[in-house]
Design a protein around this nucleic acid. Structure first.
Length: 255
DNA sequence: ATGGCTTATTGTATAAGA
């Protein structure tokens, strides 16, 4: 059995105790993290290792940063899309765990203006090109992370209210569908087809209390891996209480 | 229509998140 989880922790320093406790309780084989928001030297490698995990990561100050923690050895690590584009934002890392390639990605949010929205669409196009040139859709690969897109209306608590909003626009969905068309299945949707499942709730107001969320954190797998999946769950309990990230962990289990 | 809250910043208001 192989449990692969993804969690936008919204600062590994602010979330340190919760992450360590969650690893101890849930015992995933792999945890992909996003928005670690710290340079490599500030990442709490020691306590993650003490919990039984080795880490690979690419961090930066204040924003972004992605990591992979794994009980099994991590090999063949690649950082960044490395496509010649001038881009300092740390959003992509991929490594091998046994015969499975696991990527931790943090797709740009795309809010705050047209320039950031275009950057998001372009980043998704670059991700597709990276897959085209560096990966094989016939082999086991898990694409995990904060995709910052609700793929369908059933992934939104109130599709009318969110219609046309960033995270839900047709342009973003098309750009993400183009990534998916490379050869992915949405592991969560393989096991749960109904609406009402979310992975992010706004910190502001009563959104979590009223379960007004979006499903924007995903585990996608190539058919060679997805065919082994037995379930995918969202740990809504991890969003509860003080000092919670605004995202919940998503865990896929493979035979 | 707006903002609510959280995180980080050589901070003390601003930027960004989603």
């Amino acid at each position: 059995m192989l449990k692969i989880a993804t969690w936008n922790v919204n600062s590994i320093r602010a979330r340190h105790d919760r992450v360590v406790a969650w690893l101890a309780a849930e015992q995933p084989d792999v945890l992909c993290m996003q928005e670690i928001k710290v340079e490599d030297a500030g990442f709490p490698r020691d306590s993650i290792e003490a919990a039984g995990y080795q880490c690979v990561l690419v961090g930066q100050r204040t924003y972004n940063g992605v990591a992979i923690a794994s009980k099994l050895p991590l090999t063949d690590v690649t950082i960044g899309l490395d496509d010649g584009v001038d881009d300092d934002e740390k959003r992509f890392i991929i490594a091998s765990v046994g015969d499975v390639r696991v990527a931790s990605i943090y797709v740009p949010n795309g809010g705050g203006g047209a320039e950031r929205f275009e950057y998001k669409l372009e980043w998704l196009a670059r991700l597709r090109r990276w897959l085209d040139t560096h990966a094989d859709p016939s082999k086991p690969l898990a694409l995990c992370g904060d995709f910052n897109v609700a793929p369908e209306d059933r992934d939104i608590h109130d599709p009318k209210k969110w219609e046309g909003a960033v995270l839900c626009t047709p342009e973003e969905r098309a750009a993400l569908a183009n990534v998916r068309a490379w050869g992915f299945e949405d592991v969560f949707r393989k096991h749960h087809s109904e609406p009402g499942f979310f992975s992010w709730w706004d910190y502001r107001g009563v959104s979590f209390f009223k379960d007004q969320g979006l499903r924007i954190d995903h585990v996608w797998a190539t058919p060679a891996l997805a065919s082994r999946s037995t379930d995918c769950t969202i740990d809504r309990a991890a969003r509860k209480g003080q000092n919670a990230s605004d995202h919940a962990p998503v865990t896929a289990t493979f035979a």
